[in-house]
Every structure is written in C-alpha cells, then in structure tokens.
Design a protein around this nucleic acid. Structure first.
Lengths: 228, 228
DNA sequence: TTTAAAACAGGATGACTGTCCTGTTTTGGA
DNA sequence: TCCAAAACAGGACAGTCATCCTGTTTTAAA
C-alpha cells in the first residue's frame, strides 16, 4: 500500500526525516487499529518499507517508538480534534457540541469506528509502564485544561457563572471518551449524538421537541475492520 | 529389569469445575491488569497452578478462554456493579449517583485504579475479532438498557417526563466509562466525583456551594502497579 | 469388575518476536 | 579530497508463545 522507493542497485538516498515520518505514520495507524502488543515490528517494517537496521537506528526499542507515537501523534490528534476547536469556538458549550457533531458525522461517513487514539492506547499501556502512563496522563490533562480554560474565559464574559470549569471539563472529556469506547464496540456512532443530546438537555431548559425531533437514530453495521 | 513406573507420591483428584474456576479467576485478573495480548498462557498456568494439558482440555484456545472470561466474568461484574444496583435503586438518577460514589470510594480505599473490566477488554479486543466484539457489545447493550428501563419506570411514576431514557442511559454509561478511563490513566479516582457533580449540577438547580465546597479534590499517587 | 470417556500431565514443536550485531553506503563539514 | 559520523542494510540470536501430541490417571456408568 505504501509507496516504496524502487531500488536501483547501488544507489541510495538518505532521508532520515522522511523515513522517520513513514515509520510513525505506519505505527500510529497500526497501534490504533490493532493495538500495541498485537503490532509486531516486522509488520511495521514491511508496511513502512524500512529495514530492521533503519528502524533500530531511529527507534532503538519498540517502547521508544510507541512513546514517540504518543508524544507526537496522539497528542497532535487531540490538539487538532479538541484543543484547537475549543480555543476557536465562541464558548465551551459550543465547542463541545461542535466536536461531538463533527466527529459523529465523520464516523458516519467512514462507516466504521476505530475509536479514540488516546483512549485506545491509554487502556492498553497505562498500567504497563510508568513512562507510557505519564505521557498519556499529560495529554488527558492538557485536553481537560483547555476546556476548563474556555469555561473560565466564558465566565469572564459573564456566562457560565454556575459552572465549575474543572468539573465541566472532566464531564466533557469523560463523556467523549466513553462514547467513543461504546461507539467502537457497537460500531455505531449514534451514541455520540445520544450523549450530546442528553448533555444539552440536562443543561439548558426543557426541550420543546421530544421524541419526534430532527435527529433520528440510525443503526450502522460495520462494513469491515480496519484496513488501513 | 524391574521397570517400575515412577510414582509421584501425590495422588490426583479430579476437580474439573474447581480447576475451571481457578483458571477463570486468574485469567480475569490477568487480562484486567495486563491485557489480553500481554498475558501469556504460561503465566496463567503458573498462577493458577494448572498444567498445559488441563488448560487445553477446558479451553482449547486462548480465544476460547477470553470469550469465557467476557461472557461469564465481565458480564457478571457489570451486572453486580451496575445492573443490580440500578434495579434496586429508587430512581435512575439515584442509582447513577450511588454507583459513582460507591466506585469512587472503593477506588480511593484501594489506592490505585485498575479500570473498568468491560472497557479494558473492549478497547483491546473489539476490533481484533468479531466474536469478541459481539460479546462485548452485548454487555454494553444490557448495561445501557437496564438504565433506560429504570428511567422508563420512573416516568410511569410521574417523574423524568422530559428525559429521554435511551439518551440518559447512553450518557450515564459513557460518562462512567470515560471517567474510569481517565481515572486509570491519571491514577486518580477524583475525576469520578467531578463528573458526577457536573452531571448533577446540569440537571438540578444551581449549586449553592462553589469552590470551597465540601468535596475537596484530592490527589492520589499510585502506590504500585497491579501485583495480583 | 469392566470399560469407555473424561480429566489431567508434560513435553515437543514450529512459528514468531524484539533486540542486537557487523558491515556498507551516504552525508556534510574541514 | 578526506574523514568521521550519521544513515541504512540484512541477518543472527535467544527467547517466548500458543498449540498440539501422546500417554497416564481418575471417574462414573454398566
């Protein structure tokens, strides 16, 4: 699948950054789809088109590779999916709604659910190694803090006076994480919308539309498993 | 030649049910603490004190063993922790609060967080095998349905008229799952209380206590990793 | 007691995995 | 041009793993 440079015998081009990027791309996708322990370095080498020597040169151990994936890729994914949109949104509540809806729509278009990159690795690795746990915990903290900061900013503008920033942020992160977990297992992204609606119903006044509302639940059968 | 068969002086007593139970006990704990792929059958055999032949007799493959753990142990854990308390509670909201607080207290007493049995395995195995996914999805469904049924029962008694049962249930399950995921990674059960408070603040009227309130956040450093 | 099946013991096996090692090629600075 | 370090190639290696196999013991029914 991945384009592999042909090998005219005798000629070689060193591209350490490109090779490193290719390895991280493959590792990120493979760890995400199959998990850390189920992904062998042989699989990764084949998929990335790199040799054992090259892989070992950039990442001495499998743990080092996973740590790089966490710190560079997973953190970036959370930044892109959550933190940046939260900062750009008009309010914390709008941000939460926006991300939930955007992710739900994206998953419905894809037709299958791979799960949340952070939570996928967090479950498998948090108890396996203190370094893994520390790296993953840092991402959770930054994610939660970004939301809490947004609530605090809202409060400076006179809104959300009765909202505890830390608690609101915890609820948003937990609900999203859990909803993605359920969506992955059920292979149905609808639970994201269910959670969002329940969240907003509880916060705002009673909804005028009930039962017959615009969002109709839709069952989705997975097409296939992760063929990346 | 006095070909005397070596007689290991111990006599053997067949106890298929007991042996099976021991294996499941060990497998449940080990899958929970280290995950499925990180748990080798050799470890399990040693921990349970069974031989390879005995293990293979009861569980022909590792997958069969994991499936038994999911269907018998994980399902039972969800039943005990959530479904039974929900049925016994006075209302759905009381049930949710009760379980959150009970689990948070239990984790704080233990001093470390192993995570939710269902979510731990769901993340690692949902995409690995259709049989795993089906078994895990069934448990999620039963969990959610038990809460939704409770909301419906509340509605028959005149309460929760503005609450959508399925959505409320989805939110409860997702928030708990996500909170346990965060708690496991941070090794801090406080997020469970944060989520519960945010959940109830959104539903009930504004909380009078703010900031200085009775529940003070407490940082917990993990004592040790799972030494089962 | 006889007998067949279940329960258990314990090792063989072959495939796989992560790491390391030695050697070769490329690169950038002096 | 020269050279040291970085970048890469490719295989060796020692374990580990899940499964399977043959053989023995126990159990319960006949």
């Amino acid at each position: 699948m991945t384009a592999r440079p042909k090998v005219p015998p005798g000629k070689r081009t060193n591209d350490p950054e490109g090779l490193r990027k290719r390895v991280l791309d493959v590792a990120e996708a493979c760890f995400q789809a199959r998990g850390y322990h189920a992904s062998s370095l042989g699989d990764l080498m084949a998929a990335a088109g790199v040799t054992g020597g090259a892989l070992h040169h950039h990442f001495p151990t499998k743990k080092a590779l996973a740590l790089a994936v966490i710190e560079e890729r997973v953190a970036a994914a959370v930044e892109e999916t959550w933190i940046a949109p939260v900062r750009a949104a008009g309010s914390a509540r709008e941000a939460v709604r926006g991300v939930f809806e955007a992710v739900a729509t994206e998953l419905e278009q894809q037709g299958f659910v791979r799960g949340c990159p952070l939570n996928n690795l967090a479950h498998e690795l948090s108890l396996a190694d203190p370094d893994f746990r520390a790296a993953l915990a840092g991402i959770f903290s930054a994610w939660r803090q970004a939301i809490a900061d947004k609530v605090t900013a809202d409060q400076h503008e006179g809104r959300e006076q009765a909202t505890d920033p830390q608690r609101f942020a915890a609820l948003a992160v937990a609900t999203y994480s859990g909803a993605m977990s359920i969506a992955k297992t059920m292979q149905d992204a609808g639970v994201l919308r269910d959670c969002l609606n329940a969240l907003e119903q509880g916060a705002s006044s009673a909804s005028s539309s009930k039962g017959e509302a615009g969002t109709k639940r839709r069952r989705r059968v997975l097409r296939q498993y992760g063929t990346s």
